[in-house]
């Protein structure tokens, strides 16, 4: 299964279309705060953009390892899948992720986890984000 990779962030223009479409499609919300991918600047807009997003860990997956209910399960190809009904909102996954790519949604009391659907890559005008076969 394919996974999302932020390959060419040098080319990012900071339009945040990825965040807008991720939040719309996956959380049915207009707010970019609901996006599973986040584009940040280092040192203001004159700095470089970076994408904070699930790195599609393979083998030992830290967030899944700490999940006490088994709501987070290893995903084929990399990353995890979230079974919302099983999640008790403990937030251990949030702290376990080294790249801070799991966001806790204070409204639903569940984490927002990238599912590597690739909608963000489809709407990236400069090809910074790509859906690729697991590396």
């Amino acid at each position: 299964m394919k996974v999302l990779k932020a390959m060419q962030m040098n080319r990012c223009i900071g339009c945040l279309s990825c965040m807008i479409t991720c939040a719309s499609v996956n959380q049915q919300d207009h707010s970019i705060l609901k996006s599973a991918i986040r584009i940040k600047t280092s040192g203001g807009l004159s700095g470089k953009f970076i994408a904070i997003v699930c790195q599609a860990c393979q083998g030992d997956v830290p967030c899944a390892e700490v999940c006490p209910t088994g709501a987070l399960a290893k995903r084929q190809g990399g990353g995890v899948t979230l079974d919302k009904d099983n999640c008790d909102g403990c937030q251990r996954c949030v702290t376990a992720c080294t790249v801070d790519a799991i966001y806790f949604d204070p409204e639903t009391k569940k984490p927002i986890v990238c599912k590597h659907c690739g909608v963000c890559a489809r709407f990236c005008p400069h090809g910074c984000l790509q859906l690729t076969e697991g590396v």
Partner: peptide
């Protein structure tokens, strides 16, 4: 050296 965009604009005219 680069182009940038306003938030929500995929054009990047800056």
């Amino acid at each position: 050296v680069r182009k940038m965009a306003c938030t929500g604009c995929p054009v990047g005219c800056i």
